[in-house]
Design a protein around this nucleic acid. Structure first.
Length: 875
DNA sequence: AGCATCACG
DNA sequence: ACGTACGTGATGCTT
């Protein structure tokens, strides 16, 4: 049998070391992870290098140890363990268990003593022993068979203390390390030692006398000196210090070497812990295998004929679709679960079964789903009008924590500890290899999803109630999903010919700009390549370099604007960029998205994506159609009503974010400004520059507007200086003046950051949450970013709450009034409807009314509106 | 797949 | 001293 190799880890010391060596990382739910991360990387490395047969991680048991009997101030004056570290210990223990490594602690003893005792026992049995710690005290345990590894900064860097290494480094034997500490003391453990004796003196004395005891036996012979006096005066203290520093090797532990066999990690469990802590790089790097087999058995059936008795009053339903493009892709089948029976129906059965259709359309039959909007939209395409959605796992998870990423059932379920659903990739493969498996495999997969949703429904609802977020979820997001689904399915009509005509005109202008650019550059090159463009501008033409990117010269618009006076080519490039963008993204890109059968685009509003609670829009993104520049704005001429003689009607909130800020900060001045109905930027300029209304110049208003933006974004002097192209000092002065004029805003901003530090998250008016793990980060940039986010998210997020509520109220109002007008789009602070001309008058009345009263604030909400025969004309 | 750029609120 | 304004998505280029 090969020689046994025992690895003994000093848990507390390593965790402390890692905690202070690494930046204060945290995963997306706000749990700090740096100590566990550092411990893990160290562990991985050492396991690979040493391949131990036995292992143990020792921990300190509590505050008092037997050493306190000797000296009650032992380890006195120590700073309390930071809470960011304490919270990591449970995860550390979980991780060690997942590795299947024994852990041990013993009342009254420190980890050192456990390690010392076991090391001695192992040595007696002729085992090789390796001790790993962050604490050099342990080096006293080194012998020919016992090596002590001490981590250096970075955790994976290790210094190996063998007796010969110690001899080389200090000229001492390992045992003399104890004497050294007796003489020099150890401030971190509050061991006094002999005052005035440091490492150098201690080593010198020990080389001469050998040990503390020997020194004092021969001290009479020492020639008279200050040093001698000090040593004589502190004899007791030196001997006590040595005793304190001595690691016990006969601790009465009730664990033996036989218990320490190390079988290797349970890879799946380790991966689970890593997942929980978001150790993405470790997951990627490791060759740990996730057991693909799903552990729990699940009974399921493939049902050909759905009968009424199979469909209960409440069931989990999962509509499995090919991919995320639910407006164009196909249904693969539907899974059902009521916790007892689980079954699957194929798309054919679904399309031809009246019983099933009726059940799905019955509002009184409760459906528990995940991404019900996708199901609603795709079922709508086969003329099934999904109703009665009572639970949506995607939305529930998003409300619990908007940082949870991924929208498939397997990913979401595993976020909440349910792991018996396989990843879609496992079932279908990915990329070119994507394929639908045989029906049995498919049916089980889909049935499992339904069962997972059924299982997690009470878990998530409980979590929502615990967070006081149930209303936000149930009364806001869930009904909104239905409305968004209708908007998406309705779509907005696009006149392709208009776009094509614009495309031709753009093409001509682009070609002529290209010619000019090549002429001025003296050669042809790819203007779209920042790399090639950089070479032309900054090397060939020698323009001054203002800004650099990671990869080379920056050619961004703000840089080019400053270079316009340097060379005529720059303006051409700016124009080229503008037109090329319009053509590729908004002409060609948009045309690709138009559905041929109805000449409409059907965007998908992502309802569970943004960190703040806003929606986002994809395929196509209809929330960033040009408007600021006239050339781009014309794109909006291609968006038209779906019926002859209808109009597009647009209504937007005026200054909603600043009004939200007025409400939340309750700043007297800001509230007053809005109550008086003033132009807020003019009013800000009056206060900041101390002038009367008619003295406000356009430049003053412009500056005030920038400051207002800055306030909303979480002000920084640097950001404002960049925006206004002024010095940081000037920007700082602006901010100070602003905060003097609006002291309530300052107080609010200070409080929100404080509050975020305390709770780890910020909230909106409707109690939407965003966790900010970096708010206590030691890294200035990360912390500052989190602080600005703490200021911005309640504002942006509350504005999102308000318009979402308005959409729900508006939907009800249109129904109540029996109108044909339809809500089509939401663009963060505006709603776009299409309407028959004879309903315009009613909309002019009810749309502002409903939007302005969506949520009552301390200041009025104001809505502007307009309409026209194209989106462009609704201005 | 990541980066730079630019469109929107 | 640090170095960025907040939130998104699409495109084209480069690796």
């Amino acid at each position: 049998m090969a020689k046994e190799k025992l690895l003994l880890l000093d848990g507390n010391s390593l965790a402390y070391r890692a905690f202070f060596a690494l930046p204060l990382l945290a995963n997306e739910s706000g749990i700090h992870t740096n100590a566990v991360y550092g411990f893990t990387t160290m562990l991985q490395k050492i396991l690979e290098e040493e391949k131990p047969t036995k292992m143990l991680v020792a921990f300190d048991a509590g505050k008092t140890t037997f050493r306190h009997e000797t000296f009650d101030e032992y380890k006195g004056g120590r700073q309390k363990t930071p809470p960011e570290l304490s919270e990591q210990f449970p995860y550390l223990r979980k991780l060690i268990d997942a590795y299947q490594i024994k852990r041990y602690e013993k009342e009254l003893y420190e980890a050192d003593d456990i390690i010392g005792t076991l090391a001695k026992q192992a040595e007696n049995k002729d085992m090789e022993v390796i001790i790993v710690s962050g604490d050099k005290d342990l080096t006293q345990l080194a012998t020919e068979q016992v090596s002590v590894y001490i981590t250096r900064k970075g955790m994976t860097d290790i210094e190996k203390y063998t007796p010969s290494h110690i001899e080389e480094k200090y000229g001492l034997t390992p045992k003399q390390i104890i004497d050294m500490k007796g003489l020099m003391g150890d401030p971190s453990d509050n061991i006094p030692g002999v005052p005035g004796v440091g490492e150098k003196t201690a080593i010198k004395l020990l080389k001469e006398y050998g040990s503390v005891e020997a020194l004092y036996e021969q001290i009479d012979g020492m020639k008279k000196s200050k040093m001698k006096e000090k040593l004589e005066a502190n004899e007791e203290q030196a001997k006590m210090s040595k005793k304190l520093a001595t690691i016990f090797t006969d601790a009465p532990i009730d664990i033996s070497l036989e218990d320490l066999d190390y079988p290797g990690p349970n890879e799946e469990e380790v991966l689970q812990v890593w997942q929980e802590l978001s150790f993405k790089s470790l997951i990627e790097k490791s060759d740990f295998q996730v057991e693909e087999k799903v552990t729990a058995e699940l009974d399921f059936e493939i049902v050909q004929e759905v009968t009424p008795d199979m469909l209960k009053d409440a069931m989990a339903v999962h509509v499995e679709i090919e991919n995320e493009h639910y407006h164009t892709c196909q249904i693969l089948g539907v899974g059902f679960s009521d916790g007892q029976a689980n079954f699957f129906v194929s798309i054919d059965t679904l399309s031809n079964n009246e019983t099933l259709k009726n059940w799905l359309e019955d509002d009184s039959k409760k459906k528990y789903m995940s991404d019900s909007k996708a199901a609603q939209a795709i079922l709508n395409r086969i003329n099934i009008d999904l109703r009665g959605v009572e639970f949506d796992m995607l939305l529930a998870s998003y409300i619990v924590n908007p940082a949870i990423s991924g929208d498939d059932v397997a990913t979401l379920a595993s976020e909440f500890g349910y792991r018996d659903v396989q990843a879609n990739e496992t079932i279908y493969g990915k990329g070119a290899k994507w394929t639908v498996p045989n029906e049995n495999v498919l049916a089980e997969h889909v049935a499992r999803k339904a069962f997972a949703i059924w299982t997690l429904q009470p878990v998530l609802e409980e979590k929502l109630r615990e967070n006081e977020q149930f209303d936000l979820y149930y009364d806001l997001e869930l009904p909104l999903a239905t409305i968004l689904g209708k908007m998406e399915s309705e779509g907005i009509k696009v006149n392709i010919e208009t776009l094509e005509k614009m495309g031709v005109e753009l093409e001509e202008k682009i070609t002529s700009l290209e010619k000019e650019i090549y002429e001025l550059a003296g050669e042809t090159f790819n203007i779209n390549s920042p790399k090639q463009l950089g070479v032309i501008l900054f090397e060939k033409l020698g323009l001054p370099v203002i800004k650099k990117t990671k990869t080379g010269y920056s050619t961004a618009a703000d840089v080019l604007e400053r270079l316009q006076t340097e060379h005529t080519i720059v303006k051409y490039i700016l124009d080229y960029r503008q037109l090329a963008k319009l053509k590729s993204t908004y002409i060609e890109g948009l045309i690709k998205e138009v559905h041929r059968e109805d000449s409409k685009v059907h965007t998908r509003f992502q309802q569970a994506l943004t960190a703040t609670g806003r929606l986002s829009s994809t395929d196509p993104n209809l929330q960033n159609i040009p408007i600021r520049l006239e050339e781009g704005r014309k794109i909006r001429q291609a968006f038209v009503p779906s019926n002859e003689d209808w109009v597009l009607f647009a209504a937007d909130y005026s200054q909603i974010e600043l009004r939200v800020l007025a409400h939340m900060s309750n700043d007297e001045n800001l509230v007053d400004a809005f109550n008086q109905g003033m132009d807020i930027h003019t009013r800000t300029a009056m206060d900041v520059f101390h002038v009367s209304e008619d003295e406000v110049t356009s430049n003053m208003r412009r500056a005030a507007k920038a400051v207002n933006f800055g306030i909303v974004y979480g002000i920084s002097d640097y950001g404002l200086s960049q925006n206004l192209d002024i010095t940081r000092k000037e920007a700082g002065e602006f901010i100070d003046k602003y905060l003097q004029s609006f002291p309530g805003v300052k107080e609010y901003m200070d409080n929100i950051v404080q509050d975020a530090k305390l709770k780890g998250y910020v909230t909106t008016i409707l109690n939407r949450r965003r966790y900010l793990p970096d708010i206590t980060n030691r890294n200035f940039n990360l912390r500052s970013f989190a602080e600005r986010t703490a200021m911005n998210t309640p504002i942006q997020g509350s504005a999102a709450d308000i318009i979402k509520k308005a959409m729900i109220d508006m939907d009800a109002k249109l129904k109540e009034e029996g109108l044909k007008s339809k809500l089509l789009l939401q663009v963060h602070d505006e709603l776009i409807f299409e309407a028959p001309r004879d309903e315009i008058e009613i909309l002019e009345r009810i749309v502002p009314e409903v939007m302005e009263n969506a949520i009552e604030l301390k200041v009025p909400l104001k809505v502007d509106f307009s309409y026209g025969s194209t989106w462009y004309d609704a201005k």
